[in-house]
């Protein structure tokens, strides 16, 4: 029983800019988990893994052998669809999302994870800065998008810009 309010920085804006590093918060229209044995197959045209570069507004992030995260899709009902065999949950607010760019972007990310652009991975999930995150690229080869579980975004952001 102790008041530790002052020991922890209050959650701040997730925007940061310097000469060689820029971080901006991104608000995605929706984020939806879809699980099922065939989901990777069904969404294979929209599927994003590491180190893919996303160009579209709607895409599907490969997470596991039987799960993906639909970004920007219309929101179906959460629950289990018996016909398709798909389980769906709306997690639009479960992840906070930032875009990281600038000359130091990849270097800063490598402070938190053993990353290698030459080593593809079937999943965009990985552990970075001690947290299970989603990491891929958008638009250009030097702009990284990071989905971080909401409750730990403050910590990841602080480590990223320090």
């Amino acid at each position: 029983m102790r008041d530790d309010s002052a020991r922890w920085n209050a959650p701040s804006s997730l925007d940061y800019a310097s000469d060689d590093l820029s971080v901006i918060e991104v608000t995605l229209p929706s984020q939806i988990w879809v699980s099922g044995t065939d989901v990777l197959q069904i969404y294979k045209d929209k599927l994003v893994s590491w180190p893919d570069i996303v160009a579209a507004q709607n895409y599907a992030l490969a997470l596991r052998r039987d799960r993906l995260l639909l970004v920007g899709a219309a929101q179906p009902l959460s629950g289990f669809n018996i016909q398709q065999g798909h389980a769906t949950s709306d997690v639009s607010d479960a992840y906070k999302v930032i875009d990281i760019s600038g000359k130091r972007a990849f270097d800063r990310l490598r402070h938190g994870a053993e990353l290698n652009l030459d080593k593809p991975s079937a999943s965009v999930m990985r552990r970075a800065f001690g947290v299970d995150v989603l990491l891929y690229r958008v638009g250009t080869d030097a702009r990284f998008r990071l989905h971080v579980p909401r409750a730990l975004m403050q910590s990841v952001f602080q480590q990223l810009i320090s």
Partner: peptide, 12 residues
């Protein structure tokens, strides 16, 4: 595992 799916949505 094809008949059970676990989604931890706590932080949503």
């Amino acid at each position: 595992p094809d008949n059970i799916y676990i989604h931890d949505t706590t932080q949503h």
